[in-house]
Computed example of a mutant assay.
Amino acid sequence: YKATLKDSTNWSDATEVPFNSDSYSTAHPTLSADGKTMYFASDMPGTHGQSDIWKVSISDDGSFGTPVNLGTGINTEGKETFPTITDENELYFATDGHPGLGGLDIFMSKVNADGSYGEPQNIGTPANSPQDDFAYLIDTKTRKGFLSSNRTGGQGYDDIYKFTETRKLICEQVLAGVVTDLETGEILAGAKVTLMDDKFNKIKEIMSDAEGKYDFGMVECGKIYYVRGEKETYETKEQKVTISKESGKTDLPIQLEKKVKPVTVGDDLAKAFGIKIIYFDLDKWDIRSDAALELEKILDVMKQYPMMKIDVRSHTDSRQTHKYNQKLSGRRAASTIDWLVANGVEKARLTGRGYGETKLVNKCADGVQCTEEEHQANRRSEFIITGL
């Protein structure tokens, strides 16, 4: 039901919400801090278990939208009930469907900026017990609150308990840093900094400020990210960062290296510009995703030096026969050249051949026991400058 507060003590105009029904229950309503969303528990059609957490939008005129189930990240085949949403976008609810201490346990899920929900976290003891614990309510300023429970030691079947929160329940991490020139240490304002997940999918893109600082804000604890720094006249740089599982700040400085460097015929382009070796998988000649990222840097250098010509030299490890490896390395050289041509390099600027296993960089010749990493070091392409 919905009612209007006429004065400090009197309520009136109690009316049913439009999605009530005699066929199912709707219970435990709670409002978001801005009053625009109501969360509630129900076993209405579309429920995944015995009861689920739902939400519904509230318009400026007080009318309601269509209820939306929060999905299987929150709801289970069991019972989800007693939701509470704080002004810190933390959704608390009771459930017997997520792994807990027994009966109903209180869980919390962070509501992300995009409206998605973080993985529910059991708030643990002493708030939860082997019995039913529910109806969690907290003042985010004082960190004091109340919950209900039928735990041992109460005065009745269900009792109300008060508590003070002594530590944040979730891990909160901020990812930030400063972009500088590798050689001089000069602050680099206006650098593009991109946050990517562990699959190199772009999450966020920002620019460094006048002090060279960038700040991605909150990131997920315990996650692996990649951060890419880019600026005109500088080499693009990517760094892997693993976020701590404890609350705090991850500082990731980005040092960019100038593109313009003296090079001469005979230099290995990859070594001259600090580009990683282009590796291939065993018995394969297709361009891996990590290799494509490095080839983009080769491409960038060749655009800077429009007269530059390179010889692509591809190598294999010693496994398989000499004849097979010679053919395989030839395919790898051709594959690398094809990628560069497809991305805008004139074919006349490129030559290449395969060297098979004739130029190993380590001890891993025929019959020598080596690790996969040692063998992979031999499966590579090199880029030798033949003309400027």
Rank of each mutant, 00 (worst) to 15 (best):
H28Q: 09
P29S: 08
P29N: 13
T30D: 04
T30M: 09
L31Q: 06
L31C: 11
L31H: 06
D34Q: 14
G35L: 09
M38I: 15
Y39I: 07
A41H: 01
A41G: 06
A41V: 03
D43A: 09
G46W: 10
T47H: 04
H48D: 00
Q50F: 05
I53H: 01
K55Q: 14
V56F: 04
V56Y: 05
I58N: 01
D60M: 02
S63N: 11
S63P: 05
G65N: 10
T66H: 04
T66I: 10
N69H: 12
N69C: 09
G71V: 10
I74T: 06
I74H: 03
T76Q: 07
K79L: 10
E80D: 08
P83E: 05
T86Y: 11
E88V: 10
E88C: 04
E88F: 04
E90M: 15
E90Y: 01
L91K: 03
T95P: 01
G100C: 10
L101Y: 15
L101I: 06
I106M: 11
M108S: 06
S109I: 00
S109N: 02
K110Y: 02
D114L: 11
E119C: 03
P120H: 08
Q121S: 04
T125F: 14
P126I: 01
D132E: 09
D133N: 15
F134T: 07
Y136I: 02
L137R: 00
D139W: 02
K141D: 15
K141W: 04
T142Q: 12
T142F: 07
K144W: 00
K144A: 12
L147M: 14
N150D: 15
N150E: 07
G153D: 00
G154L: 07
Q155K: 15
G156A: 15
Y157E: 08
Y157F: 14
D158R: 12
D159K: 13
I160P: 05
I160M: 15
Y161S: 08
Y161K: 00
K162A: 03
K162R: 13
